[in-house]
Structure formats: C-alpha cells, structure tokens
Design a protein around this nucleic acid. Structure first.
Lengths: 154, 154
DNA sequence: GCTTAATTGCAACAATGTTGCATTTATTGA
DNA sequence: TCAATAAATGCAACATTGTTGCAATTAAGC
C-alpha cells in the first residue's frame, strides 16, 4: 500500500501548506515546528513524540521531548496531524475534511496505513447515533486487515 | 446516556457469562481475574490498569499492576473487554459480534459512552477499503459528540 | 489431599508524559 | 536594523505507565 511517490518537491509543498495554516492562526514559525513537520512528512508510519526525537537526533538535531509534546498537541488542535488510535503514534493528516473525521486502513502485517474519507459513511454512522439521541461531531475509525501487497504474498 | 440499570443481579449475570467463556477456553478462574472483571462491570467509564488497581485498593484488595496488565490483555484477546481508543482505558464489551468490531459513542461533556453494532455500516466501510485492495478484518470506530442529556442542558 | 501447569507477585527497570520556571527566539513596529 | 515583547523552547525534577525474568503461589484434575 502507500504507493504515493513522495518526492522532495511534494514534501516541501505540503510543509509549506501547514506552515501557512500555522501563520494564518497567528502561531510563530519556529525551527522546532518546522523540524517536527518535516519528520512527519518524511515518514509514513505513525510517530510517537519520542520517535520524532530519535529521528531528529540521528540527523544531529536535538529537541527537548517536552517541546515535541507541545508541538504535536498544537498540530492536533489545528488538525494538521492526528493520533492513530490503535498505536498512539502521530501521522500528518493526508486528507482534511471540514469536520475532522479520520478513517484509516491499517495493515496488520506490514503496518502500512492509508487514510480515507467518505461522506456517506459518516452520514450513516451519525444517523445511527442520532437514533440514541447522540449528536455526533466527528468520527475516528480504523479498519484493521491486510493490504493488497501482503495479501498477494500469502 | 447509559441509562442502563445495573443491579447487582445483572452484574453477577454478566460476570458469570465472562467466567464461562474463560473456563470454556481452559483458563483458570482466579481471584484476581474475578476482581478485575467485577471492577470493569461496576464502572461505566473506561478504566486503565492503574485505575483498576486504585479501585481495588480502595476496597482493601491489592493486585500487582503486572497482574492487571496481563489479565486485561487476556480479556482483550478473548474479546471480553476492549480498549477505548481515544482514552486508552478498558471497558467490558457490552455487545459482541463475531468479527470483533467495536463502535462507540463518546460524549465529550460527561464522558459517557455507549457501544453499538451495525452490520450494514461495517459492510459499507469494508467495501470502501476493498476498493483500494484492502481486506478488512474488523473495525474500530468512535463517534465523538454530545449525548442527549448534555445536549438538553445546553 | 497431591501433583502440576498455570498464574501471580516481586524487583528492577524502561519508556512515556507533565509541570513550573528561566531562557531564548520570532515577530512587530519604531 | 534594532529594540520591545509576547510566544515558544529548554531544563530540571517528577509522576505515571508499561515491560521482563524469575521465584512463589494457586486452581484444577486426579
């Protein structure tokens, strides 16, 4: 899965996109924030705060773990990144819908993950909740299974 | 939400149900396992392993935290309990479907949660994943929002 | 009641997450 | 370009959560 070809150009583009969002909301564009953003961009797997610290350290960059926690928390609030529920790691949001719904497919063999959005699905799920009087604001969902690559190999 | 009237009788019933499942699979019915089961039964909110330790300690019962981790892990494998993804706490499974899908509604005001199952929804979500060649085994999903009680109060 | 395999407790440790406060830095406007 | 300042980071110290190996205990079956 994740056959996305992520060239340096594309990464730069997405990073710039996130930076604009930060700026627009009045947040400073600091070196640590750019570094965390870049680490998230360059890695497909979910990264825990300490994972990010390790990755950056290997590149000779040192960030205090407290700083990373605070940055990730900010990214999450701004919907620039989100936490993969089952593993606890952070990934950069690939898709952004207005409500902040996240749906992931996670391969239990290789760990690859892919994000998807589907309005109809959200609508259906919200209706079911509504039947119990529940007012849904957003959905988080993870489909666990096997990706096409791993399926072929078996 | 959670208007379920949990009388001591009912709790006993559900605990006994879980115990039978343990027994059927060849696991021993030990005092610690019964205590953890009871703690999960008597509490609606998700409980972390250390939460459970604190609750039991208040009742004069001491369990080593390692034991609790191992018991919860067993319960999870047997689908007797599952982890609430967003909070990390454990709840006893209210509903059990063959595949092990879990869908929760979590109120962001009062924290109340309610489990639900819907075959059609699972089917739809699986189909969407199938379009990317992904073979879904089970779904975990959480709807975040406001329960009817909290909604009225606003 | 024994036997024994499963389970628990313990110790020691590793990893993760939090708080308050001093220091540094990105932005703004003179 | 530089000073002012509010925001952001680093640091220290700590709290919580999670893991491993091994010895002691216990539930289940005879």
């Amino acid at each position: 899965m994740l056959h996305l070809l992520i060239t340096p150009d594309i990464i730069l583009l997405v990073v710039r996109d996130s930076i604009q969002i930060l700026q627009a909301q009045g947040y400073k564009i600091t070196k640590p924030r750019k570094q965390v953003l870049k680490a998230l961009e360059e890695t497909q797997e979910p990264l825990s705060p300490y994972d990010i610290q390790r990755i950056l350290r290997q590149q000779g960059k040192y960030l205090n773990h407290v700083t990373i926690y605070r940055i990730l928390d900010l990214f999450r609030r701004l919907n620039l990144a989100h936490r993969v529920l089952s593993s606890g790691g952070f990934v950069k949001c690939a898709l952004r819908d207005k409500q902040g719904c996240h749906r992931l497919m996670v391969c239990r063999c290789c760990g690859a993950l892919q994000e998807f959005i589907d309005d109809k699905l959200c609508q259906h799920e919200s209706e079911l909740a509504q039947n119990s009087g529940f007012h849904t604001e957003y959905h988080l969902s993870e489909s666990s299974g096997i990706c096409s690559d791993c399926y072929k190999k078996q």
